[in-house]
Design a protein around this nucleic acid. Structure first.
Lengths: 282, 282
DNA sequence: CAGTGGTCTAGACCACTGA
DNA sequence: CAGTGGTCTAGACCACTGA
């Protein structure tokens, strides 16, 4: 399924541990507390709609009618010629409005058949995986790192398969901890394909993070992600300064450029300090 | 920041518990194993590019040159008239190519100034939050639910604030566990604004899940998400049949239609059974 | 001022679907 | 076959920027 939308996201950093609510409470109270969202600043500029372009008017009209249920999911919507007549605009204009709605997932179009209201609910919503350093800095906090390892290694069979390399080939391996105002937020274990970034190990990660450096040498063109909750390894717990029983949010990322794998990373975040947040609106 | 892309996602359901690797191993081995992605079927149809439309050719050309670093982030790219001359197409055609690249976040355009290569790395990538039932069913598994609670309640102060209602107003409250082939995958605790779905409690959740039902009565038009790793409550652990020390992936979702809050949900997934997966390519 | 992007028009040809 | 969407053209007017 395709989902295209304007999508603004922010990362929430929780310093204080989440309160341990008494679990003996009635379920109602327990859940009420656990389900309250963090307060948001919500600047919400709401730009002036001043002069709206014709294609935007058509699009806004269709969006509004869709939201009121005028065209239930799966039903036929007006054709391009009908909208041309209704709005007295050229076909290119309504075409653009409809194409954008299709791109955003609100309608389905089939050549030779027509335009249909989409089954919105079937579409999953998106959440961004933010760049930690960028978010820390842009929120006015101080970002720092500790480099615990930066070396060459011969890769294992499993790793070799991921990188499409022969077992035993040299790869770069770093282990870096990221801090937000001195608090450990992420333990990043990363392997890098030397062919893509020969100078990787020579980089001063206190000046430029692995993620940022890799961007400069190889634009990101494909990525695979996985987000899960699990316990940290003993080493990770020690590096993060948390108990080995602390649930962690773990992000695995693998990026490639034109089928050449660039890097494989495991980013471990203490569950009580880090959370992925997303706000989604059409 | 705006991020628009074609984005395909799948949910991975892990039945067997993740293997507990020996943590006494060298860090290299430990991480290699923990960082391997699950094998994917990757059907990857790779549609034939057969006859590519002119606007698509221009777009593909610009994408390719961008990926090779011809225009470093922030640098000036060819203007519309230049591309018109180069490709011998009309301005509308190159305009569409550039507009789509802008929508997808690859270029930045400023009226009166020009088109610039975007700072790709600053853009965060997206991940979808899939609809559990839909994913279970579409993967050929059997989806079932257990309804543990479905009642009216007077809402607490915190909940009332979330719903923009007065404290003590009646709201609907359900507690449902979702199973994939009999294995508990999600414990969903949900509050619903009665004004939006008066018949919510009369629904047979064995036939139609809360999410699906709410879609039918109120199209989703705005949502707020939060994903975190934490321990389940004692009740959740019992309902899911896991230890209270099991790290869980917890999704909070709040949806609203035109500023009217519809529902607030807390979805708790055992970390060793559920994972969010995303594959991202331009 | 020249150059840029933002948008629109009126017409066109095409591929596709379903009666 | 008539109706649909997919796309393109050649020209146009405009707002905006920076010299």
């Amino acid at each position: 399924m395709t989902w295209r939308m304007r999508f603004s996201v922010s990362i929430l950093v929780v310093y204080t541990c989440l309160v341990n609510y008494k679990e003996e409470q009635t379920s109602t109270d327990t859940y009420n507390l656990k389900m309250v969202f963090p307060k948001q600043s919500t600047p919400s500029p709401r730009r002036d709609t001043a002069a709206q372009a014709p294609f935007a008017k058509v699009k806004a009209y269709l969006m509004k009618e869709l939201s009121t249920g005028r065209w239930p999911p799966g039903s036929v919507m007006p054709s391009e010629p009908e909208l041309v007549a209704q709005f007295q605009v050229s076909r290119m204009t309504v075409s653009r409005a409809l194409r954008e709605l299709q791109t955003e997932g609100f309608v389905t179009r089939v050549q030779g058949v027509g335009t249909f209201a989409a089954h919105l609910g079937l579409v999953s919503s998106t959440l961004t995986l933010p760049d930690l350093q960028h978010e820390i800095v842009s929120s006015g906090h101080r970002h720092s790192v500790q480099v615990h390892m930066a070396q060459e290694e011969r890769c294992s069979a499993a790793l070799a398969a991921e990188f499409h390399l022969a077992e035993g080939t040299l790869v770069f391996h770093t282990l870096v901890v990221h801090f937000d105002n001195g608090i450990a937020m992420q333990c990043e274990d990363r392997f890098v394909n030397p062919a893509c970034a020969p100078d990787y190990l020579a980089t001063d990660f206190n000046q430029i993070t692995p993620t940022v450096y890799l961007r400069t040498v190889a634009p990101l063109w494909e990525a695979q992600y996985s987000v899960e909750a699990a316990l940290p390894t003993a080493q990770e717990a020690a590096l993060l300064g948390v108990s080995a029983a602390t649930p962690c949010l773990i992000v695995l990322r693998k990026t490639a450029n034109a089928d050449v794998p660039i890097t494989l990373a495991r980013q471990v975040h203490p569950g009580d300090r880090y959370r992925l947040n997303g706000h989604f609106k059409p």
